[in-house]
Simulated assay, not measured.
Amino acid sequence: MIDTIKTPDSVVGWVGRIPRPVRPYLRLMRADRPAGFWLLMWPAWWSTAFALPPNAPDFWLFCALFFIGSIVMRGAGCTWNDIVDRKLDKAVARTALRPIPAGEVTVQKAILFAIVLSLSGFAVLVQLNSFAILLGVLSLIPVTIYPFAKRITNWPQAVLGLTFNWGALMGWAAAFGTLGPVPLLLYAGCLFWTLGYDTIYAHQDKADDAIVGVKSTALKLGDQSARWIAGFYLVFLIATGFAGSLAGFGWGWWPGLVALAGHLGWQVIRLDIDDPQRCLSLFRANSWVGWIVFLSAIAGKLTAS
């Protein structure tokens, strides 16, 4: 009898149907795990919808550019993260089979791949105005810092929030060539959104993280996590609501905000920090948050007086 052993090649989904030499690079950029790409893209789409009505000439162009940019830059960020974390990843069960610790991709090839992805992202970025280009380049600062945060602070999720929600600034900057209270308030709210959903995500790895010395809000907050996550989500809800009000949204914005409150409350009620599968499912459910805010912002613009 031959034992079935899970190997790096035993990839399910569409990535498993791609020619084998390409698979490690798709896994390196997390193409088989699209939830992270959506979470990176949504703040940019929200910011665009806060700035422009859907019938504006550049609305869907900006959405398309942010869609492509989020894919390649999330891939570049994940690759950089895996380069920095390659030794830690070997010690954590969930990450031990990632391409670099599993020996499928060398560090040198991973660096080259990250450069190619970053240049692809820059090609998207230069389609925007000069202010947005500069702002986009500045996003590389938190991207570079983030992988080291888990080594020095119990709040690496806050650094991730600063990184992952840069799009909340970009959509407005692309539309107007400047920033203002609306995108800044949206960005601040999104930071707390990330604190919530990534604390949920971090509970999957808390046992391994404690052993290898990796810090996280899951370990810091422990059994009080649900209360903190509820607080994070409440701040996100209030900040996003005020941002919509400042943006001049009409009545169509508010029903969606009620739906958002219900969805976030459902996540907190369903949370079981000792059930990794439940944590992963709730983390992925934040893609619905993206749709709720985006469609509600469009409705708010269309009903504005």
Score class of each variant (00 low, 15 high):
residue 7 T to Y: 08
residue 8 P to D: 03
residue 8 P to W: 04
residue 15 V to H: 02
residue 16 G to I: 08
residue 22 V to A: 14
residue 23 R to N: 04
residue 29 M to T: 11
residue 29 M to W: 06
residue 43 P to G: 10
residue 45 W to H: 07
residue 45 W to E: 05
residue 61 L to V: 13
residue 62 F to L: 06
residue 67 F to D: 04
residue 68 I to F: 07
residue 69 G to W: 12
residue 69 G to K: 08
residue 69 G to V: 12
residue 71 I to A: 14
residue 72 V to Y: 00
residue 75 G to D: 09
residue 77 G to Q: 10
residue 77 G to L: 05
residue 96 A to M: 04
residue 97 L to I: 05
residue 99 P to N: 07
residue 102 A to S: 15
residue 103 G to I: 13
residue 104 E to P: 04
residue 109 K to M: 09
residue 112 L to M: 12
residue 113 F to V: 09
residue 114 A to V: 03
residue 123 A to T: 13
residue 127 Q to G: 00
residue 128 L to R: 00
residue 129 N to E: 02
residue 129 N to L: 09
residue 131 F to Y: 15
residue 134 L to H: 12
residue 137 V to C: 11
residue 147 P to D: 12
residue 148 F to C: 08
residue 151 R to E: 06
residue 151 R to S: 12
residue 152 I to S: 02
residue 153 T to P: 07
residue 156 P to K: 10
residue 158 A to L: 15
residue 159 V to C: 06
residue 159 V to R: 04
residue 160 L to G: 11
residue 167 G to M: 10
residue 167 G to D: 10
residue 172 W to C: 06
residue 175 A to K: 10
residue 180 G to H: 07
residue 185 L to D: 01
residue 192 F to S: 01
residue 196 G to C: 01
residue 197 Y to Q: 06
residue 199 T to K: 00
residue 199 T to H: 01
residue 199 T to A: 02
residue 200 I to P: 03
residue 200 I to N: 03
residue 201 Y to E: 01
residue 210 A to E: 15
residue 213 G to P: 08
residue 213 G to S: 08
residue 215 K to F: 01
residue 218 A to R: 03
residue 231 G to S: 03
residue 231 G to N: 06
residue 233 Y to L: 03
residue 236 F to R: 02
residue 236 F to T: 08
residue 241 G to M: 05
residue 246 L to E: 08
residue 248 G to K: 06
residue 258 V to I: 15
residue 267 Q to T: 04
residue 269 I to W: 12
residue 274 D to W: 05
residue 274 D to H: 15
residue 278 R to G: 01
residue 278 R to H: 00
residue 281 S to E: 15
residue 298 I to W: 01
residue 299 A to K: 00
residue 300 G to N: 05
residue 301 K to M: 09
